[in-house]
Amino acid sequence: MFSSAGFFLSQSVRDFKNHPYLHLSVVVIISLACFIFGIVLLFAFNLNRVVDSIYADIDVTVYLKPDIKPGDDVYKKIELRLKEDSVIESLKFVSSDEALAKFRKEMPDYNKLIDFAGSNPLPSSIEIKLKKNTRDVKSMERFVAGLSRIDGIEDVNITGDWINRFFGFLAFIKLVAGIIMVLIGVGVVFIIYNTVKITIHSRSTQIEIMKLIGATNWFIKGPFIFEGIWQGLGGSLLSVGILYAVYSFLKNNLEGAFSFIFSGMRFEFLDPFTIVSILGGGILLGICGGGISTAKFLRK
């Protein structure tokens, strides 16, 4: 068994040396397939990070009617009602004085206007942080609609009401990316099929001889499977390298623009598990290619 594996290994390495262009073409195709898959993953991975960062910024502010303070019966009722809601992570009461102090600090140009008014026009409020997994548009709409009906609440405000529009745009981007992926995927499959056809032709005589001498199907397949492993490994490693180059280019040239829109946003490369998955997928593709190219002759 092990001596056969050693033979398959040496055969596959020798075949690489004897037919470098044939193998290189397969490596390039596998690399292309892995690259397309990888770039989509890279895109999706960073898009999810953008979405997460947007969700993290979503706050709900509940403005209370005048004269409601912590300790009041109405306030207790509101607090109790909010704490019962499973979507809430934390609550923070902001008194009208605190709100005014914050306003004065952040908007010093308007201090005179406040002084002119004579009294504090800002209401007390409760700042609500939502749990991460409940920060989707529908949950929030439902939550806000429920809040509006509570006695003692004057108004409800969600920071970032542009989010709805953003998610609509995101859905469109995903659809376009999906269509492009399918089209490129069909193209790659077509190229792989044709390359396998050429490979089959180059191997037909060799396979016929092996069969006539008494080799079993598995013994014939062995070297081709090993070749597939090399091709897959080579192709997927190449694709990860190109992906990293693309990632570095985007990071150096576009990250600044993105962080302007999404503060603190950074492009990240694929995590180790995904990289290993791409390498595994490439190897699997190579093994399938080797298997398909021999199977036709082994069926005879």
Binding site: M1, S3, S4, F7, R14, D15, N18, T205, Q206, E208, I209, M210, L212, I213, G214, A215, T216, F219
Partner: peptide, 28 residues
Amino acid sequence: IGVVFQDFKLLRDSNVFDNVAFALRILG
């Protein structure tokens, strides 16, 4: 069965030793 083929049917990419050894390798 050992067969001496009219058109030899040798593995083009293998050397003389490996062509002959193949018949033993398949036997493990």
